[in-house]
Design a protein around this nucleic acid. Sequence first.
DNA 1: CATATTTTGTGACATAGATCATCGTTTCCC
DNA 2: GGGAAACGATGATCTATGTCACAAAATATG
Lengths: 193, 193
Amino acid sequence: MHETLLSYIREHSATPLTDTEIEVIKAVFVPRQIKKRQFFLKEGEVCKYSAFIVKGAMRQYRVDDKGVEHILRLSIENWWVSDRESYIMLTPSRYYIDAWEDCELLTLTRADFLDKLSLIPAINEMAKKMDENFAIAAQRRVSSISLSAEERYAELVQTYPEFLQRFPQHLIASYLGITRETLSRLRSHAARK
Amino acid sequence: MHETLLSYIREHSATPLTDTEIEVIKAVFVPRQIKKRQFFLKEGEVCKYSAFIVKGAMRQYRVDDKGVEHILRLSIENWWVSDRESYIMLTPSRYYIDAWEDCELLTLTRADFLDKLSLIPAINEMAKKMDENFAIAAQRRVSSISLSAEERYAELVQTYPEFLQRFPQHLIASYLGITRETLSRLRSHAARK
DNA sequence: CATATTTTGTGACATAGATCATCGTTTCCC
DNA sequence: GGGAAACGATGATCTATGTCACAAAATATG
């Protein structure tokens, strides 16, 4: 189970891992299975764990006053989930995170990260690269705010084609910030051409 | 001129700076003055510098097919500017960055950062904290996509009240992803209450 | 200090996208 | 394997916001 994670770390850093380091990693990343629809984080809670998805698919969303869910992030195998703000600042989260498919996760507490993992050079290198990638993805997503619904969808198809297979349209629509009806119409227009 | 930057570094790290380190910092951060409307980065160029704003105000934006500017980021004193994607990946940028007011900058190349600055513990600590803050801000901004224009404006007033003093309404509007007319109407409605 | 430019406000109208309602189709699960 | 829930398509409206046009303030600049 930890093998997937170890490969991921190796792919995201140039520094190799020693045997001792591998032992530390296996010790701090606690496996956890969660079933579809089960919560990983609820609004108001502090996000205690960051998780690496070994298998499955998850979603992060907020719920507005009318009870409507707004998807912030969709994640699948080899991605990480957590509410970074809550995880780092230890503040109550504004978001929910739950499993969209049955998942196998490797969970990590902030304390273990700071005390044990941040002593490992390969991990720091990886963490830095992840922060950079996150920043780049976020900048792109912010930049897409000014696009039309159709353009945003086209960009998604381009960037994360896997999502279309893994998540139903109403989740994709919410991720794009539009209603499922609009997405449905969008797609039939695009197909017609 | 470097004093502002040194205070900034001290505020964002627990590790103190040695005299040698201060010399390195003064050597790699090159001062540059740029006048209002002058470009720091143009679309298609690789972003060679990251800059700390000692004085002034800048904006980062993209220009769509119709020639309309879409503001991505507004920055003032004690903030950093750069197109992170281009700066890190060395890819041509999709954005423009220019001065909205006359500015005093301290500019840093990626090579100097990697070769010289990343040997300084206080700098690494600061860089990490900045990455975290950036990630948090980005997550919030993405989360606000699903809000109405009015709610987004209210959030901006709350988060960055300084912006209202420093930038004209049409830039604020563009930053929010709405037209200047809509923002104008929004404000008169809000005031009426 | 006078004129040019930028910024802001507001009316009339256009439109992308939301909402609400209905109805097949698929897939879930007991 | 059959009923319930979830999913997706599509029509009829409604509404927030965009577009265009013009004018009044405010601000910059020779």
